[in-house]
Design a protein around this nucleic acid. Structure first.
Lengths: 195, 195
DNA sequence: CTCCTATCGCTACTATTGTTGCGTTAAGCT
DNA sequence: AGCTTAACGCAACAATAGTAGCGATAGGAG
């Protein structure tokens, strides 16, 4: 017989996903335990082990879910403001008391296991693609040189925020976010990001 | 009676530190277990628990050791080449088959626990300070505007490398490193990093 | 050299984490 | 409605992680 995407299995899956997110928000990735998720979701421990195998598996599954949600890319008519908007979106996302810890947990999990790492890789590939139109519009407007690498410009703009958050563990202000966006723009204007 | 910095305790400490580094290189932070370190170091399990308490404690201690080593900052006479050198130093460090996994494990540990996070914060503060003269010399030579924020320029230059390594999990080429350095330079020249 | 005690090693124990085998339930087909 | 079987729950078990109490050892002071 075939797989059964609907019905009980689906309910179990949803309950576990939900419980995973709540556990992540409360205790972070380090505090994500199979038994914790099991008891919170009401799904039995053995079932969680069978279907997800490990905390890594739980994360990879939850990430897949989160990755499907689109990103509200700005379109202000000015690359400077679009970039600032994107970077601020990232900064405020991690600062959010609910979404922040969950997003941080994803990063944390991806640094440890290859499963979550692949999932996060795909997630960011999608994000870079979604943000690319901002750059293409700017090229059309003549704000940056033709041939400017869109994904690279986005990487450049957001990376200082991630660097502070997850590498140096420094606070990130709104001004830091703006400056990162402006710096990326300046580099693009100078033609450094042409392919 | 006072603490005993030398003698047996010191030997135990060194053996554990050494074993911690080897375990990190082999299994990463996720595979760093108290029992593994104990058996490898020849120090008894209970002693490792008593003095270091947890894997986090082991990491914090090892990081303190690693942080004391200075950084071979380049001085080529050109900011462009100095920055490229610094970024390439970072990239090649993580690509190194011995030092890479250990350094990655530090980052990984810091993302999880606040103890290692503080230690890593201090580590990078030191790195930023050590790299600042590169920028100051460049200001003196007139390559970038006076008032350019040295630490921010360094952050900007290295952050895309860390972003690829630990956030998006993309490969990092030498060309990527160069481009990051050049982009940071362009931003500084444009005056975006003045305080 | 001798004594004192901080630190370590050892054994035995508890708690937590992960596994196995089997009976039960319910989704989906006829 | 009745049947088939994939997926779940359950209890008992095995393995690993962490703790406690106590005797042994070796710095360092006198």
């Amino acid at each position: 017989m075939e797989a059964r995407p609907g019905g009980r299995s689906a309910r179990v899956r949803d309950a576990v996903r939900q419980a995973t997110l709540v556990e992540l928000a409360e205790n972070g990735y380090g505090g994500l335990t199979m038994e914790g998720v099991a008891s919170r979701s009401g799904v039995h421990k053995t079932t969680v082990y069978r279907r997800w195998g490990s905390p890594e598996g739980l994360i990879a599954d939850a990430l897949e879910l989160a990755g499907s949600e689109p990103w509200p890319i700005p379109d202000t008519g000015s690359l400077r403001d679009d970039l600032r908007g994107i970077v601020e979106l990232v900064r405020s996302g991690f600062a959010d008391p609910v979404a922040g810890p969950i997003a941080s947990a994803f990063v944390s999990a991806a640094v440890q296991g290859s499963g979550p790492a692949q999932a996060l890789h795909a997630f960011f590939a999608s994000r870079h693609e979604q943000a690319a139109p901002v750059v293409e519009r700017a090229i059309a407007r003549g704000e940056v040189p033709p041939g400017t690498d869109a994904a690279e410009l986005i990487r450049l703009a957001v990376s200082p925020v991630y660097y502070r958050l997850f590498i140096t563990h420094e606070p990130v202000t709104e001004r830091d976010a703006e400056r990162a966006a402006d710096a990326a723009l300046a580099a693009a204007r100078a033609g450094v990001l042409r392919e």
